[in-house]
Design a protein around this nucleic acid. Structure first.
Length: 376
RNA sequence: GUGGAUGUAGCUCAGUCGGUUAGAGCAUUGGUUUGUGGUUCCAAGGGUCGUGGGUUCGAGCCCCAUCUUCCACC
């Protein structure tokens, strides 16, 4: 998997590049909409590709393994064919679900046992089985199986967890190298840096990950409740160690401001449920600030949802109408807001890219961060 | 007209033997949401307990009158 950096910013560590996959190029920095079960909640694939112009989406190993199961995935000849999406896909490994389903988890050296949230049945994920599952799903980018420790974690827990993640990574890479793609297109494996909120662990983990020489590298275990400044401090260190000529992926982040800060620190890829989840609950991100469309003040505001927006929903529908749909509990409200938010996130990273290429990123970012935090 | 039932938050209703500041759901208002168990979660505002008397240390609750709405029968 080839990654070419077109330009690196002079004032920050931001870069603009292109990541080539067998399902097409990804222009970085990029935001990747989350499509956990083979569906970005409330948004059609057609809208994703045509209206939002998403370049890559996520699928989730944990969820797809439980349903529809790998038996179906194999028959469907992979997730691309199954869901009718011929652009790149990245699959999360299920490591985060082990963390978020902590009540039911049990970690051993071998792997993680957990109970299905669907029927309560017991399952075991190992680095090897997760690699096999991600091969079957057929993602262009597969994520290593890791443990995502909660915040706060004490030093000892964080260290043991990181070391376990490293041993699992070695097994992931071994299995990855011993197996072939099922559907003819190339797959990459990205390892994940852990280390909680401890700089020396983050350094150690970044170095270990960098040594593996994979096509791209991820930073996990952040945005799990720690202060934003702490996240930036960890990210700053990780990106200073991870190879500059490979894409860097900050997992699960975040707010529009988080993403701009992440780009400035040399991160190229982001994913987050925020635009879709918050959209379903009526929070709209715009270039002028944040709107809670449920608020009464929009009741008779017939101006466009977002006059500066790039999606058709921004000009076709008024704030009053979307508020009405939201208050009435209509599903269309969440769909409109999800489409808007995803389009906005994609616009934001495209705009960041443009400014990096034009050498104006730093100035643009400063003014943008200011506006993004405004509440309308 | 007679008999019975009913009246408590915007709506639908709880409210024990008469006892602390009358509660719930929905609705309203605001906040929340970070590698998606999610139309999420949290909180706030909102009351002359139909009205007027009475009994009692104390009444949403007991007594009297009156009004509202509903039902049945003339």
């Amino acid at each position: 998997m080839k990654f070419e950096i077109t330009k690196t910013d002079t004032n920050t560590r931001a870069r603009a590049g292109v990541l080539q996959t067998d399902h097409g190029p990804i222009q970085t920095p990029i935001f990747m909409p989350v499509g956990t079960v083979g569906s970005v909640k409330g948004v059609h694939q057609h809208e994703l590709s045509h209206d939002i112009q998403a370049q890559i989406i996520l699928g989730n190993t944990y969820h797809l393994y439980l349903r529809p199961t790998m038996h179906i995935m194999e028959q469907a000849k992979g997730l691309h064919n199954f869901m009718g999406w011929q652009k790149p896909i990245l699959t999360d490994s299920g490591g985060y679900q082990v963390f978020s389903l902590a009540a039911n988890r049990k970690l051993t050296e071998e792997g993680a046992t957990f109970r299905s949230h669907i029927d309560g049945s017991k399952h075991l994920f190992t680095p090897e089985s997760v690699m096999d599952i991600e091969r079957t799903i057929g993602a262009d980018i597969m994520m290593a199986f890791d443990e995502c420790p909660p915040y706060p974690s004490d030093y000892k827990y964080a260290k043991n967890s990181m070391e376990l993640t490293h041993r699992w990574l070695t097994r992931c890479i071994k299995r990855f190298n011993e197996t072939e793609p099922h559907y003819g297109h190339q797959q990459a494996l990205f390892p994940i840096v852990q280390g909680s909120t401890y700089l020396d662990l983050r350094r150690q983990s970044s170095e270990f990950v960098a040594e593996q020489g994979m096509d791209g590298n991820a930073i996990g275990g952040l945005s799990v409740g720690e202060p934003a400044e702490m996240m930036y401090e960890m990210l700053d260190l990780c990106t200073s160690i991870l190879p500059a000529d490979k894409p860097r992926y900050l997992m699960g982040v975040g707010t529009p401001v988080n993403i701009l800060e992440g780009i400035a620190l040399g991160t190229d890829m982001f994913d987050c449920v925020m635009p879709t989840r918050n959209g379903r609950n009526g929070m709209i991100f715009t270039s002028e600030g944040i709107i809670n469309i449920k608020n009464k003040k929009w009741e008779n505001d017939f101006s466009p949802l977002d006059p500066n927006g790039t999606s058709y929903v921004d000009t076709d529908y008024s704030r009053a109408y979307v508020r009405h749909l939201m208050v009435a509990g209509e599903r269309l409200a969440g769909q409109i807001c999800s489409i808007h938010n995803l389009a906005f996130y994609l616009w934001l990273v495209a705009e960041a890219r443009k400014n990096i290429l034009e050498g104006t990123f730093s100035v643009w970012k400063t003014s943008m961060v200011q506006k993004l935090q405004t509440r309308l």
